[in-house]
Design a protein around this nucleic acid. Structure first.
Lengths: 153, 153
DNA sequence: GCATTATTTGGCAGCACATGCCAGAGGCCT
DNA sequence: AGGCCTCTGGCATGTGCTGCCAAATAATGC
């Protein structure tokens, strides 16, 4: 695997800012001509540095009034319970992210749902249906101070 | 402002899955011809439903070994302190996300840095430099079970 | 220091795609 | 049913993508 150099970093930065940048514009911004620029992008994609591209959608405008962060601790940590738990996480579309954390909780989930009714439904029918959960701590998001997809220089 | 219909939702879904989809491919997937499809996309952009597009980059592969979630409670909540705090958040490139939360903490931050040294530097020089912070609780990410950008159906 | 090799770059050509315009289809109210 | 409004589809033009080859630059050996 190749090493990432300064030019690659520039490319990544620009594509994080605008994932639909034209290859020509991108090339111009990083002071390259289109062909080598495109090749670098393809290499970054193949190397798994650039995993994909996506539209950033406003949750509220799209009808999802509730975003919640949920911290979960398991009762037991045998491989079996963990596997089943993570499988259920994968299958729940409302759960966008799930991270393994150090600290008091084991997992941190980010969940979006249309409204409080759906949230209740999600917690009662989905979360509580997963065996092996020890504790659940919910925090609702009532504001977004910052939301960036661009890594620090 | 227009109401979002089923076709718009389909478009949003496809563009969340692949933000670089060609308008032609997109049109095909949602059973539309290119022109009306493109128009819908533009309307969604202008309406602020689609906020932008971005490349999804692997933090580790890009050299950021550490991702941390940091919960912060303020000491005081006068408008002044809050404003200054949030300004500092905006200016810190290491902080990718910052949400206002219900529950014990006031804020949840998502932070990425290259390594533990940089993390220490960030906490000591950036975070502790912000006045008015009451408590800080750090959780390091040591695994990602799920990471999706596609909203539930 | 010079020659050789490897890697990266830039330009060109053919092809696919985006985009604005206009006519036609479908829905809705009266 | 008629008329109005909205949305769709097709076409034409200009722009961008992408693969190939030659030139330039960087790395290596002697």
């Amino acid at each position: 695997m190749k090493q990432i150099d300064a030019k690659d970093r520039q490319i990544i930065r620009e594509l994080q800012r605008d994932g639909r940048l034209t290859n020509q514009d991108l090339a111009e911004r990083v002071n390259l001509s289109p062909s080598p620029c495109l090749r670098r992008v393809r290499l970054l994609e193949e190397a798994g540095v650039i995993v994909g591209y996506s539209a950033d959608v406003d949750t509220r405008a799209c009808g999802f009034q509730i975003t919640a962060f949920i911290r979960i601790a398991l009762q037991r940590h045998e491989g079996d319970a963990v596997e089943r738990f993570e499988k259920r996480i994968q299958d729940a579309d409302e759960i966008l992210d799930c991270f393994l954390l150090t600290g008091e909780a084991d997992y941190l989930l980010r969940v979006v749902v249309a409204d409080l009714d759906e949230y209740e439904h999600f917690v009662r029918n989905r979360l509580h249906g997963i065996p092996g959960i020890g504790s659940i701590t919910t925090s609702l998001v009532y504001g977004t101070v910052k939301s960036s997809r661009v890594f620090p220089l």
